[in-house]
Simulated assay, not measured.
Amino acid sequence: MARPLARVLRTALASAAFAALGAASALQAGTTTVFAAASLKNAMDEIAGVYKAETGNDLLPSFAGSSKLARQIQQGAPAQIFISANPGWMDTLEQDGLLAEGSRQDLLLNSIVLIAGPGTAPDLSVTIGPDTDLAAMLGDDRLAMALVDAVPAGIYGKAALTSLGLWDAVEPKVAQADNVRAALRLVGSGEAPMGIVYATDAAADAEVRVLDTFPADSHPAIVYPAAILAEGDTVETRAAFAFLTGPEARAIFKRHGFGIAGE
């Protein structure tokens, strides 16, 4: 009985904390909180700056793995907009009735790449395919990935390795990180010689280089859906969402390497 009770208490405390944050957020007129997948950080920070300059209002991004953000939304976290790195977590929130009706749309596209860090031989060349002996290349070292059963970048990476017949040999060598940016840092800092991240993440870190891109048919299409959350559906939120999904923000996303869904 102690463990269930402890979970109940933790949930109650978390809900109370989120409610308090929501009340505080509501007092900040002109602020729209966006829960965004960690891979969106550079682009979203730029978009928030442009939005502030043009409207005088604030876009306040909060970054983490899509799974973590979705669970926080389920617990009542005070956000108005959610951009997920895969459709699955958005599906979950939609099934829970937590999205504003009709607001969901596919926004961005991405790809996953194998990257190398600063300590890797500069002449290392890799062509990803079923014959790639990635486990042998790693030796006693680790392959950095986001959580392979929860975070989209990790899910896509595991799917690609499985499709290519490489997962069983590589799995014992995987170092899992909380989100894709954390996996990127492991490689950029030299703590792991190689990793699997989004192409946009690799472009954001000068300490890593792309060895190869995983074949598009080795994993599900990488789609970022965006939606307004039902509890935060206001005129102000709608205006912010229109900007986030509009031509100016799309141009910024493209400059950071994202594809645009539907183009």
Rank of each mutant, 00 (worst) to 15 (best):
K41F: 04
I73D: 09
T245H: 05
L21F: 09
A177V: 01
W89M: 06
D149M: 09
K52P: 02
R238N: 14
A159H: 11
Q80N: 15
I81G: 08
Y156T: 03
T245K: 01
P78R: 03
A14N: 08
D133Y: 10
L27Q: 15
A36M: 06
I83L: 04
A23H: 07
A14H: 04
Q75I: 05
R7S: 08
Y51W: 04
F18I: 14
K173L: 13
P78M: 02
V148C: 12
L166Y: 07
A6C: 05
T132M: 12
A36R: 03
G30C: 14
E236F: 05
A206M: 00
R104E: 10
I128S: 05
A16Q: 08
S111V: 13
L107C: 08
N179A: 09
V151W: 03
V151F: 07
A146S: 10
F258A: 02
L107I: 13
A19H: 14
E207D: 14
S25T: 07
L184C: 03
A192H: 02
G246R: 04
R255K: 09
G139N: 00
G188A: 15
A221C: 06
P4D: 04
D58V: 14
A203K: 10
G117T: 06
E248F: 00
T234K: 06
G157V: 08
L27W: 00
Q95R: 15
D141A: 04
T245W: 09
A203T: 09
V208N: 05
A153L: 08
S218W: 06
D91W: 01
L164F: 04
A12V: 15
M1Q: 12
Q80W: 05
F258S: 03
A199Q: 11
M90K: 05
K52I: 01
